[in-house]
Simulated scan of single mutants.
Amino acid sequence: MNFTRDRLQNNQTGVFTIFGDAGTGKSVILSHLFAKIQLLARTDNTSALYRTQNYFLVNHPEVLKVYKAIAGSNTILLKKDYQRPTTFINQLDKHNQAADIVLIDEAHLLLSKSDHYNNFYFHNQLQEIIKRSKVVILVFDQTQVLRMKSYWTNERLNALLTPYPHENYVLKKQFRMSAGPELLDWINQLTLRRTVTELTPEMLNNYDFRIYDDAEEMRKAIVMRNQQVGLSRILSTSGYPSTLDGGKHYICEGKFKMPWDQYNYTETPWAEIPATIDEVGSIYTCQGFDLNYAGIIIGPPIYLRDAKHGRLDVDLTKHTDVEAFKKRDDLTDPAMIESVEKKMIMNSLNVLLKRGVYGTYLYVHDPQLRRLLLKQFEKITQK
């Protein structure tokens, strides 16, 4: 708030970035901050924020539904305050307007190249938002970058922000998952360093973490949890047939057979629709959301390359999300592209593994990796 007031009073463009891992409360902070800003803007004629024109942006249709629902039950917040970035840019240009304060949730999902399919004809959404605003406050996590058209790193973000007065803050405490630091570190080693470290009994303290040899048994357990506490769903990485053609495409693992999530035309987020207990969610329907229990399928692209040292690798030929890896003019080195694509697949697993508040159940397609994890899990649960 101090940063915002200073920028407005000095009529100086500024950017404030909040960094934090999945589940560290970035969206909660941003949501409360926006409510405070709009209260001052619409009711306090003694405030420097009075009558400022402010917006909350998120490039995720499912998350946007949540914010609009919150606005519908709040007398200060309006549904029109919450927009997709492209809508915001195009509407301001159409009416020759500018914004005062803009908050951006999930800024790692902003487009960093033109995307004519989504009516974005510039080169970088964040850059265009800053041009049209006085103060920009955003939350960012480079380990949640999932698509080439939204390719970001901390270095790329810093290079874009260098011309502007800017400040940063890093959130470190995990609020979503009730798991301890030992299990969170195990997840980070698995997804960010592609290394399976030893499971220990401490990782199961106050958190329901399980490894399954049978995906169907895992499904039954998640259904039971959903009946008990609600908001429990099956999620999966890529590697199974998936095409946006309106038809159902199934994930099959032994006796397990369930369709991918369908496009959600309702105003209710996917995870809150009761019928989606019979679907498999993807990163596109669960990113940014809390689940009480998450059953995760690690699909065919991720496999155990080196059993002795627990090293994982990614087989890009088994990746089935064709929209994720569209070419970019600024990435031409084949080795670099391969490295980025593999990192994005592991990022998607990182996103999935940090959804469950009370528990995470895991099934792995690759037999070698599944055996290794089961051996470790049985070792600590049979004591």
Rank of each mutant, 00 (worst) to 15 (best):
T320A: 10
L126M: 06
Y263N: 07
D208E: 08
G23E: 05
K79M: 10
K255I: 01
Q83L: 13
I129R: 10
D366I: 04
R371H: 11
K79E: 15
W260L: 06
Y151P: 01
Y164S: 07
Q376S: 06
Q227D: 13
Q12V: 11
T195Y: 11
G310P: 03
F140Q: 01
H249R: 12
V170R: 10
E378L: 14
Y303I: 07
P181W: 03
G246R: 10
E128A: 08
R225P: 01
D315W: 06
L111S: 02
E323L: 14
T4C: 15
P269S: 09
G310E: 07
N292R: 12
K257P: 03
D81H: 14
N96T: 13
T200Y: 08
L146V: 10
G281L: 02
Q144N: 06
Q53R: 15
L8H: 05
T43A: 01
K173Q: 14
Y55F: 12
N154V: 10
V280R: 00
L126G: 00
H365A: 04
K26A: 00
L291A: 07
N347G: 05
T86P: 00
L39W: 12
Q227F: 04
F16Q: 07
N206L: 04
M177K: 04
L160Y: 02
K173C: 03
E341Q: 15
K131P: 00
Q262V: 12
S339Q: 11
F122H: 15
K375Q: 14
F325V: 06
